Simulated scan of single mutants.
Amino acid sequence: MKKTWFTHDPVNTDTANELLSRYAARNIQAQKTLAADPRFWLVSALLPEGNREPRRDTTYEHKCWA
């Protein structure tokens, strides 16, 4: 299965450490790098990529609005 890097939005130190521990518990390779703003961190994880595109959300669609 193909894997790609997913990068979270900049987060503070506590959130970054929590994300890293959650990824480590699931045996997923993750890394933490300093963002452009030195108060925040970027957390990246190597996640499996799906074979198909995600389905379109039809929650608020109705036939008469189409």
Rank of each mutant, 00 (worst) to 15 (best):
D57P: 05
H62F: 15
C64V: 12
V43I: 15
Y23R: 01
A25K: 15
A30D: 00
T58N: 12
P48D: 11
T58I: 11
L34Y: 04
R39C: 05
N27K: 15
H8Q: 08
E53L: 13
R56E: 10
F40R: 04
T15A: 06
P48T: 09
C64Y: 12
T58Q: 07
Y60A: 07
A25N: 14
E18D: 14
N17G: 03
E49N: 06
A24T: 03
P54L: 05
C64E: 10
K32Y: 02
K63R: 14
A36R: 13
N51Y: 07
T13M: 06
N12H: 10
S44R: 13
N51G: 10
K32H: 03
D9P: 02
N17L: 06
A16V: 03
T59Q: 11
Q29R: 13
T13E: 12
E49K: 11
A25L: 13
N17S: 10
P38K: 05
E49G: 03
L42P: 02
P38Y: 03
K63I: 11
Y23E: 01
D9R: 14
D14A: 10
P54W: 05
L46F: 09
N27S: 15
N27Q: 15
Y60H: 11
R22C: 07
Y60N: 14
I28C: 02
A16E: 01
V43D: 00
E53D: 09
D57G: 07
P48M: 13
R55C: 05
N17P: 00
A36L: 11
H8E: 10
V43W: 00
